[in-house]
Amino acid sequence: MLKVAGWSIMIPGILFFVFLFAMMPVLLQASPIDGTLQLSWEQGFQSLKDYFAGLGNGDSFQFYSGKNERSFWEWIGSYFVTSFYYVAAAGVAGTAIGLFVGIYFSLSEARITRSIVDFVGSLPDFVIVLIMQFAVVLVAREFDVVLFEVATLNSEEPAIALPLIAMIIIPANYMIRGVAMQMRLTLKEDYIGNAKARGLGKLYIVFYHALPNVLPFVKGDLHKLMGIIMGNLFIVEYLFNNNGVSMLIFTNAFVEQSGIYQYNIVVNGLLSFLALYLAGYAVIRAFLFLLGRVFLR
């Protein structure tokens, strides 16, 4: 009952935040006198009113891309699939790498490797992306070998591998540190000592006694992990010029010729982002459920 009440409060709150956040470029207007920022609530609520009025006749799902008027429903499918590919891959691969490398770190010293992981974890995501792109360009210049596409320049040669690696690194790094810490604490529990006293093998104890008790903590951290993935998605899609949901918002928020702000495409894009979040969360939960079934005693 409390969970239902919590969701009934949280969902309207999230939707309110989406509509208000998309309204910011309309709300914040520069004063024509001294250039200071002022709140224009009238224009903001007019945008909101126009959006809801356009739901009936479909105007809220029309937007301008360049000089042409486009339908949101015709475009969102391919953009959503592209973003979902990266979110799902980053979630599953990042979680898997984080779990197994975190277990390895909890069982061994591996100081140098751990220092590298900690250093990478201290870097902002856009810095990691730029370093990777620079490294590919450097290798191509020195050895005349192009390892990966550093950006999507056309639909025939999209950048796939490098954005995927960039999407996986940060959530994997977060999971590694969390799992390693939790695994160390779990291995100190009394029931682990009893398992050792019974002569059970080390790997059996880790995967069939300790890991099932670590997975609930991983599940409890999923929303934070998804927040990292979604924030990373904005950076990756923008820097690699990949046609995902965030790029749909970036490139069409303002009409190219007139500079008019398109409130409807931003709202629809952010709502699609929420759907992408839920889909990615469901994929990771399913992966953890299957993993838990594999190592269930």
Rank of each mutant, 00 (worst) to 15 (best):
K3L: 13
W7R: 08
P12D: 04
P12T: 10
F16I: 10
M23V: 10
M24D: 05
P32A: 13
D34T: 01
L39G: 10
S40D: 15
Q43L: 14
G44W: 02
K49Q: 11
G54Y: 12
G56D: 06
Q62A: 10
S65E: 07
S65I: 00
K67I: 13
K67S: 11
S71K: 06
S71M: 08
W75Y: 09
G77E: 08
Y85E: 11
V92W: 00
T95C: 07
T95R: 08
A96I: 05
A96E: 06
A96K: 02
R141P: 03
V146W: 14
L147N: 11
T152L: 11
L153V: 12
I160N: 09
A161N: 11
A166V: 05
I169Y: 01
I170M: 09
M175Q: 13
L185Y: 11
L187D: 08
N194W: 09
A197P: 04
R198Y: 14
I205P: 01
V206C: 06
V206N: 08
V206S: 01
H209D: 11
V218Q: 02
G220E: 03
D221K: 05
L222E: 09
I229T: 05
M230F: 07
M230P: 03
I260H: 15
Q262P: 13
L278D: 12
G280R: 00
L290K: 03
